[in-house]
């Protein structure tokens, strides 16, 4: 713990480390979902601190939808190499074979098949009994009451009627055979906390978070980056080059960019502090149907 971390961040850090260690101590086969974004970067950094000088006693898992930004995949492989940890990559081959894609199937079906079902397949295949996710409660009004340890049945179902109260730091980690737990060590962090911490601890993040000239087209009011040749341009449509950055990172056809000149972390944080729109605005999946978060969660998406 460095001295230039505020007492606020230091406490968040300690609490997250406690959660990471608790899972390592109480579960047989934990895994950390690594989605390459800023939250995953912080979570991975915390895991390295929590178990130092040991390596974190669990592998990383990336559920690849095959539509991630290319820079994300490059960054992922570098980050994993730096951490010296095992990375498991799972692709829902069956979904791929069915030709599911964000363009042909729509964002909901794509996310459901490639992400939600993909995740379940991976958890079942490797028989993980606990999976860390980087979700935060401040992301959305509906997540405010989310548990840190979220219990799932053997069928990965979340039972909203039967959640365990969380008292003090005494997490009830007991599960029956076949059941599993989703664990969110960053529950109490806000978006700004995450960036402040990345700055204070000098944590590498995907350069897509910083403004740069990138080829984009405008679709339904959102700026979508043309990241590879799979992008179906409409007749006469020509990508423009604009200085943009991303506030969240997901599948490139589903992630809206924002116009920005903030080319590095301090500039970006300053811009964000002055910002007046919320993080999820750029995430196209949330606009699909209202209350969709709740539904996705019940189906096993984070």
């Amino acid at each position: 713990m460095k001295s230039d971390v505020s007492p606020h961040l230091r406490r968040l850090e300690s609490e997250s480390i406690f959660i990471l260690r608790e899972v390592a101590a109480e579960f047989e086969r934990p895994v950390m979902l690594y989605s390459i974004g800023k939250d995953s970067s912080v979570m991975l950094h915390l895991a390295q601190k929590a178990f130092f000088p040991s390596k974190p006693p669990f592998p990383l898992l990336h559920v690849d939808t095959t539509w991630k930004f290319r820079e994300m995949i490059t960054f992922r492989d570098e980050a994993v190499k730096r951490a010296g940890m095992e990375l498991l990559v799972h692709i829902n081959e069956e979904g791929l074979a069915r030709g599911v894609s964000p363009f042909t199937s729509g964002s909901s079906v794509h996310t459901q098949v490639m992400k939600t079902e993909g995740l379940r397949q991976a958890l079942d295949f490797w028989r993980f009994d606990a999976a860390f996710g980087g979700a935060r409660r401040d992301e959305e009004k509906s997540r405010a009451k989310e548990r840190i340890f979220s219990h799932r049945s053997a069928a990965h179902a979340w039972d909203p009627r039967n959640q365990r109260p969380e008292l003090w730091q005494l997490f009830n980690t007991r599960i029956k055979a076949g059941e599993s737990m989703r664990v969110f060590p960053l529950s109490n962090w806000t978006e700004l906390d995450v960036w402040d911490y990345i700055l204070a601890e000098n944590i590498p993040v995907v350069p897509l978070y910083f403004a740069k000239k990138r080829p984009v087209v405008e679709r339904d009011g959102a700026l979508i980056m043309v990241d590879d040749e799979r992008f179906p341009l409409q007749p006469g449509e020509v990508p423009r080059t604009e200085s943009v950055r991303f506030r969240t990172l997901g599948c490139y056809p589903l992630t809206g960019a924002i116009r920005s000149q903030a080319a590095n972390l301090p500039e970006m944080i300053a811009e964000m502090r002055a910002s007046t729109t919320s993080e999820r605005q750029g995430r196209l999946i949330d606009h699909d149907e209202s209350g969709s978060m709740e539904k996705k969660k019940r189906e096993g998406y984070f």
Partner: peptide
Amino acid sequence: LIETAALPT
């Protein structure tokens, strides 16, 4: 840029 609040959360 970085919170310097002396009092903890």
